[in-house]
Simulated assay, not measured.
Amino acid sequence: MTNPEKENGRYDLHMHSTSSDGMNTPSELVGLAAGRGLAGIALTDHDTVAGVGEAAEAAARAGLDFVPGVEISTRAGSRDIHMLGYFFDPADARLRQRLAGLRDVRDVRNDRILERLRELGVDITLAEVKDRGGRPLQPGESVGRPHMADVLVRKGYAVDLRDAFDKYLAEGAAAYVSPPRVSPVEAAAWIREAGGVPVLAHPGLYGDDALVRQVLAEAKPAGIEVRHPDHDPAAEKRYRRLAAEYGLLTTAGSDYHGIRQGKVFHGELGGYTVEETRVAALRAAASAPKSG
């Protein structure tokens, strides 16, 4: 019996591994994708390409197409904005140096969040966060708020991951901190300079379509992530119209982070996919001559 996902060439273009804030190793993600009949995946860890090599090797063994990816943390207006990058050279020294700088900013952010938590009477340490449930942070990897949420739940300060974010870690919550970051324009330029193609991640999460339009106009990404677990049908329809208005490619991804406290975060791997022709269009956009 044939697998329709494999036959139709479906790709999940957004997921995270243990190299940032996911629960599965890059190889494990490839195994999950292969088991679910996907034709290919992109690994898009936060501000790092530490897992790309392992994922690429595992994908080659499994017969899956692999797209090198990254999700870069930026700031525009009063919002954290994420810019996805695809088909860049993961060995590009300048990009790696720039991403290392972003991880330094993350370290500052993490210290400030922990300081605010202590002021609120919440006693968790950076060592506990970096331990990541027995898998200590490796060189080139990044640590994020989901790791803090795990510790908050484990120590009884929150019921589950969502409760930890709602009380302490989400934008606007009691311990939330966002230090100065690069702009979406800079992030998009970094991706292009490394030979890749930028795509605006999950615009529905920003709660400000005027800001989304501003980012599209200024950063000029090649695409926009339309299908995402946190986009309802109305949002998906709205962003498809926006993509048509700006002449953008549309992408999809599960934003899979694995299972925490028995719950999938954000979506199930392979649940949000695009066809192979869309991936080919992204690849062509990456290889097109860069202007400016």
Rank of each mutant, 00 (worst) to 15 (best):
M1C: 04
T2R: 03
T2H: 08
N3A: 07
E5V: 00
E7V: 14
G9H: 04
G9P: 01
L13F: 09
M15C: 15
G22A: 08
M23A: 15
N24E: 14
E28T: 04
G31N: 14
G31I: 01
G31D: 15
G37H: 05
L38W: 10
L38P: 03
A42D: 08
L43R: 02
T44Y: 13
H46P: 11
T48S: 04
V49P: 04
G51H: 04
G53E: 15
E54K: 02
A55L: 07
E57P: 00
E57R: 11
A58Q: 12
A60Q: 14
G63T: 09
L64Q: 06
P68F: 03
E71T: 04
I72R: 05
T74D: 11
T74Q: 05
D80S: 11
H82I: 11
D89T: 12
P90E: 11
P90M: 08
A91E: 15
D92S: 09
R94A: 13
L95H: 11
R96G: 13
A100N: 05
N110Q: 13
N110I: 13
D111R: 10
I113R: 00
I113T: 12
I113C: 03
I113A: 00
R116I: 02
G121E: 06
D123R: 12
I124K: 00
I124G: 07
K130A: 11
P136D: 10
P136I: 08
L137M: 13
E141H: 14
R145F: 02
R145T: 01
H147E: 01
R154Q: 15
R154S: 14
R154T: 13
Y157H: 12
A158N: 08
R162C: 00
R162F: 13
F165W: 10
K167G: 08
Y168T: 06
A170K: 14
A170W: 04
Y176K: 00
V177F: 03
S178E: 14
P179A: 04
P179N: 04
R181A: 05
V182G: 02
E186Y: 12
A189T: 12
W190A: 05
I191W: 10
G195V: 10
G195M: 06
G196V: 08
G196P: 06
V199W: 02
L200H: 07
P203L: 04
L205H: 05
L211Y: 10
R213I: 00
Q214W: 12
V215L: 07
A217S: 14
A219D: 10
G223A: 02
I224K: 00
I224P: 06
V226S: 05
V226R: 09
R227M: 05
D230M: 13
P233G: 08
P233H: 11
E236T: 15
Y239A: 02
R241T: 04
L242N: 06
A244L: 07
G247F: 08
L248C: 07
L249A: 06
G253M: 03
S254E: 07
H257A: 12
G258V: 13
I259E: 15
I259Q: 02
R260F: 13
Q261N: 14
G262R: 08
V264P: 00
F265L: 14
F265I: 15
E268R: 14
E268C: 00
L269G: 02
G271V: 09
G271K: 03
Y272C: 01
Y272T: 00
T273S: 08
V274E: 01
E275M: 06
T277V: 10
A281C: 00
A286W: 04
A288H: 03
